[in-house]
């Protein structure tokens, strides 16, 4: 049973092709959110640095936490706060998209592999994917259950 878009950033099936392609208000909300998310990620990394050859715990935590939050947000915007037009662009596409990162994840793995820490690289690769997917699955289910319980 499809609920809401597959892509939380853009889904033309849901957003509709009729909507203006580049609405400046939406782009502004995404940019502001992206700046906040990127700054938060930078500050977490500064406060919790990963030593060379070490397991990148801060990037793992950033990505898993961001995935848990997108699960909550997407259920809320598709089932409850359906009239809040800027909530998904600002918080989902902007803040959480800017906070979580795929490129740093990939570079972390490459750095570990080239530094001859293939075991840590593989462990990091797997725990991030599993942690991120489980986080989304858990928060989507929990948020849906909470909404069903509240509206019963």
């Amino acid at each position: 049973m499809p609920r809401g878009p597959v892509d939380s950033d853009v889904d033309l099936r849901v957003d509709g092709r009729a909507q203006r392609a580049y609405d400046p208000v939406i782009l502004g909300a995404i940019a502001a959110g992206g700046a906040i998310g990127a700054a938060a990620r930078y500050l977490v990394g500064l406060g919790w640095p990963t030593p060379p050859g070490g397991f990148p715990v801060s990037t793992l935590v950033i990505n898993v936490v961001g995935c848990g939050l997108i699960g909550i947000l997407m259920v809320l915007v598709t089932d409850v706060l359906t009239r809040q037009r800027l909530l998904r662009p600002f918080l989902g596409t902007g803040v959480l998209g800017g906070f979580t990162t795929f490129s740093t994840y990939a570079v972390d793995i490459q750095q570990l592999v080239t530094g001859r820490h293939a075991g840590i690289a593989l462990l990091y690769l797997a725990t991030t994917v599993l942690g991120a997917l489980l986080a989304v699955r858990a928060t989507v289910s929990a948020t849906r259950a909470l909404i069903t319980w509240r509206t019963r």
Partner: peptide, 13 residues
Amino acid sequence: CGALTTYSTFSYE
């Protein structure tokens, strides 16, 4: 690059 790429959207999808 950090903001261009995303793990949250990738996982949600």
